[in-house]
Design a binder for these strands. Structure first.
Lengths: 328, 328
DNA sequence: TATTAGCACTCCTATTTGTCGAATGCTATC
DNA sequence: GATAGCATTCGACAAATAGGAGTGCTAATA
């Protein structure tokens, strides 16, 4: 579709703009393309007609359009080699053999946020389809106890519980034993039902203060089921981007970052590393989201990177790719 | 020091400015003070001389100075009665008897952030001087296990651990038993030392892969010791304040909010509800921090509220007071 | 036919200028 | 001591101005 010079021109415009955040003039590209500004203007007019670049006003230089970024990402961009420094930082994580996969991901996304100055997101797998492995209860005072729930995939949740009446240690133990007997192996999403219809009737029979205890555990479990597992790094980085140098936009983005539902919608379905430029993503039309799935013991999570549309696509893709490979 | 009319004048200026964020003119106070604007100007000149109010430019209306806020808070302000709505919201938390104290605090500070549109902070007690109550280990796969540590005050921390070599279940159990025997009752801050000098020599004797296991637990414990316990609500609220309508200031504040050290320095030492206006606090000279200690089973935490200097002091103090009373 | 030089044109940016209105401080008077 | 009145100051806004960066177009050139 584009000839060699046009391709080179688009490449220069995109990469220059990524670096400087300012419209690119025909003049500034003369040397690189080895021709006069007039020629470049002619070519620019063409690229603009196809919709790959835009002007900010009638006599301004050009900036890439969304379509332009897309073309660049799909057809022009080459993976960028990582610097030794970047590799070094990441190797420290991957060579630490005592780290569990999820911790390694956490740490490496933290590092990537620092390297790139973009915002990174780790969406841990939901525990919904985990199965209960163990329920543990440790008394703290006469009235307070801590309930710990562990799933087969190694997720742990705990909740401190206040008993409104004195309950005998013995009865607590009985209840826990019962729960462990009846509920273990049940998926988290079904625990409350099982608790209601199988456990409750039985403890009602032989535990005196069963209501109190039952409610306490019921609450603990429902909290667990609804807990989401999101980590964000470098949220503030986005505020530093020159294109977001107005309070309106900053407020808008910060609000979106604080919205759990929006952040949870980042979850990736497709395979590979996927790039959603501007209006292609559901977060904000001025942002680009790059994300990919990861797999931990059959559980799927998502790692993502959020930055301005003017993102160092080549660098970022290479980084994510590097992580993806090291995780296997 | 101030006569009645001067006091009333300062009160009007402070409260007006809190509401509108704009300099107050002499004219606008005529009705309230029942005298002419010229008279008010004379009084204003006096208040300005003492340093209680300021002009933003030579012919502007007046705004309270830091000293003015201080005088208002110390001598003029009266606690504001809470609205039924506010009380209702908070009662839902305090009447829930199954909530542990820390959860009740969390929830109520969340609500206060919503009510006031300021930022609230809960600094949980540090676990440093807690004593170890129990160590539990649950195997997930052959190589992965989750270690759970529980303290006497009911704090729980867990860490998933990857073993770099196969370790027999039996040996893990032995190690855990040993730790439980030797380390229980030790303050968290001393656990690593005890681990190093008391546990390590012994497991070296009768656990084959003791290095692997020892390291795993050592890491788990040090993570625990360093974990801080901070909750912030409504961080973004501060961005909405009209006085912070410039990106520079927003960036500055967001950066400070993201800095763990700065946030941890909010910890309150004094008794009662304390107000730190502008340069009186260590966060930012354009902010006011109001904070108070709370006590949970002998452990001390801090709850705080961060807003612009132009804060609804009466409302906020009453709210914090209400919480403080209900926590006892 | 592709390239380029040259020029008119557009629009952004920054600076200046002027006007209006909202305040003030001061003075003379009540 | 309180007030009316007036000159004065300054911010906010709009209009005017100048400079510069960049474009599109046309005609000449290779």
């Amino acid at each position: 579709m584009l000839n060699e010079r046009q391709t080179e021109l688009l490449k220069l415009i995109v990469e220059d703009y990524i670096k400087t955040a300012r419209p690119i003039s025909s003049n500034s590209l003369c040397k690189a393309l080895n021709c006069s500004s007039a020629t470049i203007r002619n070519e620019m007019a063409l690229l603009e007609e196809i919709g790959l670049i835009e002007k900010t006003h009638i006599s301004s230089g050009r900036i890439p359009s969304e379509k332009g970024y897309r073309y660049y990402v799909d057809n022009i961009m080459k993976p960028k080699e990582l610097t030794g420094e970047d590799v070094l930082k990441l190797q420290q994580v991957f060579q630490n053999k005592s780290l569990v996969l999820t911790d390694a991901i956490s740490k490496s996304m933290e590092i990537i946020s620092e390297i790139t100055n973009y915002t990174t997101v780790v969406l841990g797998p939901s525990s919904q389809d985990n199965r209960l492995t163990k329920v543990e209860v440790v008394p703290i005072t006469e009235r307070e106890l801590v309930a710990i729930v562990i799933t087969d995939k190694g997720h742990v949740q705990h909740k401190n519980i206040m008993l409104s009446e004195n309950v005998e240690l013995n009865e607590i133990k009985q209840t826990v034993d019962l729960i462990n007997k009846l509920v273990i192996g049940t998926p988290i999403s079904e625990v409350s039902t099982t608790l209601e219809y199988e456990v409750k009737p039985i403890i009602a029979n032989y535990v005196k203060q069963h209501e109190v205890l039952y409610n306490a555990f019921y609450n603990a479990f429902s909290d667990f089921a609804s807990a989401s597992n999101v980590q964000m790094n470098g949220r503030k980085n986005i505020l530093m981007q020159p294109e977001f140098d107005n309070t309106e936009k900053i407020r808008e983005i910060i609000n979106k970052f604080d919205d759990k539902e929006i952040i949870n919608s980042i979850k990736e379905e497709g395979n590979g590393i996927n790039i959603y430029i501007g209006s292609e993503n559901d977060i904000d039309e001025d942002l680009t989201v790059i994300k990919t799935k990861y797999n931990n013991n059959g559980e799927e999570g998502t790692i993502a990177l959020i930055g301005p549309k003017r993102m160092e696509y080549d660098h970022v893709v290479t980084l994510l790719d590097y992580i993806k490979q090291n995780l296997e």
